[in-house]
Amino acid sequence: MITLKSKFISLSLILIMFSFSILNGMVDDWGRLSGGIENLFIFFGESLWPPDWSVLEPQNYPVCTTYPLFDFTCSTAWIGMTETIKIAFVSTIFGSIISLPISILAARNLSSLSLSYFARIVLAAARSLPSIIWAIFFVILVGFGPFSGVLAMTIYTVGYLGKLQYEAIEGMNNVPLESARSMGLSKIEIATGVVIPEMANSLISQMIFMFEYNVRHGTVIGIVGAGGIGYYINLYLKFLQYDKVISYLIIIFIVVLIIDFLSISARSYFNEEGDISKPSWWDLFIPKMKRVE
């Protein structure tokens, strides 16, 4: 007798074998793999390690115009990281302001079929390109610097956050909408008076998630010249100063970890029931299991 378990095992085996056969078609020489590990040790030992922490010291360029409290606030790492966070913050705020009305138009339970399709196409178009491609596009349009980064991330935020929002709105309880409709409230009143207050928690939680996402992706867009810490990574990569690059990567890792934690804590205040459950540091590595209700 074929049980569900044996079906599952055989299906998994077939999938794994299928993937290996595709990989085999793409790899011409498996011998390169052994050289790869050797290369990694050489690269790590000679170029990457130890990290060059001079990136945390004040530099001649960019010129420090103010007299800071701490010296390291004049370093490229600090300037780059704060710029990345600033880009992420501004584009999350602007992106969510733009995406909210579009997602209300896109939700099938609030607007007509044709309007919702139109709004969904707009959101899908904004989402279809990753933020780094948008960044290249805006660097061409408005030049290098954080401004093109903000524009790129805002567009991507509109697309991504808009989809999250309209899916949340479509999943909302239908009874408040029905009673508002039968009272004769207009669509704008239903959106502002019923949908937004009812969904506020999940909308805020999605916004915080989007900020965290934008910080992570904001480190990449600097590589194409759209501002942030990625600019310096790209710079030192070009000069083959990998020991500086690794120190940037360590800084990014730590900052992303901190923002992840802050995001989880902030979102715990806006969960569905509105009651507070503060996460511990462990939740970053081992996520809490959701309670089934």
Binding site: V175, P176, L177, E178, S179, A180, S182, M183, G184, L185, E189, G193, V194, P197, E198, A200, N201, G274
Partner: peptide, 28 residues
């Protein structure tokens, strides 16, 4: 505003205040 409907499940905005909910009716 001519028709008032109290569904069995009430259809209140759960995260909003009492005043907000009643104002929805008054506005209608």
């Amino acid at each position: 505003g001519k028709l008032g409907y109290i569904p069995q499940k009430l259809g209140l905005v759960r995260h909003a205040s009492v005043m907000h909910n009643v104002m929805l009716g008054a506005n209608a």
